[in-house]
């Protein structure tokens, strides 16, 4: 029981790191970027390529798994995405789903359609029996990394100058510009960090959830659940939603394997019917 809870929390934390960038672009910048998963996939592939082709140790690949998607993200934001901020949601959906299809086919072409395997260092393998539960070492590692990220993010958003500038830019870009805030630079940075975090999540998750070219499509709904159920007024909502989703998904697959992903989808639909603005939406 507690093992499931533990695995669920690890999974949930991972989902949060994967999805939090989306929650920022979508919630704060009101941009529907269905291609978010493609950045996560990019991070995953950076890690597997570095490890399997160049023998770089796992931990050393992680910064690259963050940086590569971040750079990619900023490049796309500067050239393409920014033109679509003021467009309709339908346009944004069409555009980003186009990107997803391109990314999936391109990765399939370059890397093949088989799932990528990575071998995590031996010191991260195995499980430890803690009186009440079996604790996977790698999962503990994931939880620790994600927890650090979550706390850092929260601090950056609430305590730093950048955080307040971001919030100001989102509340009213025109006023923010008037105050001398470089709104477009703020958005670009945010987009880069969100993409980078997704990439990091993709790298960390390669071992837990697998990695193949259909990754952006498989996890699309999970990301959207985190964001819509969590609401977009803060990071706390998506964080809690990720944890609930992670635990419910693992528990559902363990206890009622026949029901597959039913549990999650039904849960999401029920939540959205009763709370169309998300479970933790504040009256903003």
């Amino acid at each position: 029981m507690l093992t499931i809870l533990f695995d669920g929390i690890a999974y949930g934390m991972l989902l949060f790191v994967l999805a939090c960038g989306l929650s920022v672009t979508l919630g704060l910048m009101n941009f529907v970027n269905l291609a978010h998963g493609a950045f996560a996939m990019a991070g995953g592939y950076v890690t597997t390529i570095l490890m399997n082709r160049y023998g770089v140790p796992f931990l050393a690949t992680l910064p690259a798994a963050f940086l590569a998607p971040a750079v990619l993200g900023v490049a796309l934001e500067r050239t393409l995405y920014r033109q679509l901020y003021s467009r309709s949601h339908l346009d944004q959906v069409l555009f980003s789903i186009g990107l997803v299809f391109m990314a999936v086919a391109a990765v399939d072409y370059l890397m093949g359609s088989q799932p990528q395997l990575i071998v995590i260092p031996t010191w991260l393998q195995g499980r430890v029996d803690v009186t009440v539960a079996q604790v996977g070492i790698y999962r503990s590692f994931v939880i620790a990394v994600c927890a650090v990220l979550v706390v850092t993010l929260q601090l950056v958003l609430t305590r730093t100058r950048f955080g307040s500038q971001l919030r100001a830019s989102v509340d009213d870009p025109r006023v923010a510009r008037g105050l001398g805030i470089n709104v477009s630079a703020i958005f670009a940075t945010t987009f880069a960090v969100g993409s980078g975090l997704a990439g990091l999540g993709g790298a960390l998750g390669a071992e837990l959830v697998g990695l193949d070219p259909t990754f952006p499509i498989k996890f699309l709904l999970y990301f959207l659940i985190v964001v819509t159920v969590g609401g977009t007024s803060s990071l706390t909502g998506p964080f809690l939603a990720s944890l609930i989703l992670g635990v419910a998904d693992i528990a559902g697959k363990y206890y009622v394997p026949a029901a597959g992903a039913f549990v999650i989808y039904s849960l999401m639909i029920v939540v959205l019917v009763f709370r169309p603005n998300g479970l933790f939406a504040s009256a903003r």
């Binding site: 033109q83 346009d91 299809f101 399939d108």
Partner: peptide, 17 residues
Amino acid sequence: PQYWTFWIGLVLVVLVL
């Protein structure tokens, strides 16, 4: 043959842009 979805995606992207 296998990768035609790439081009469909490209059409979408270009169409929107």
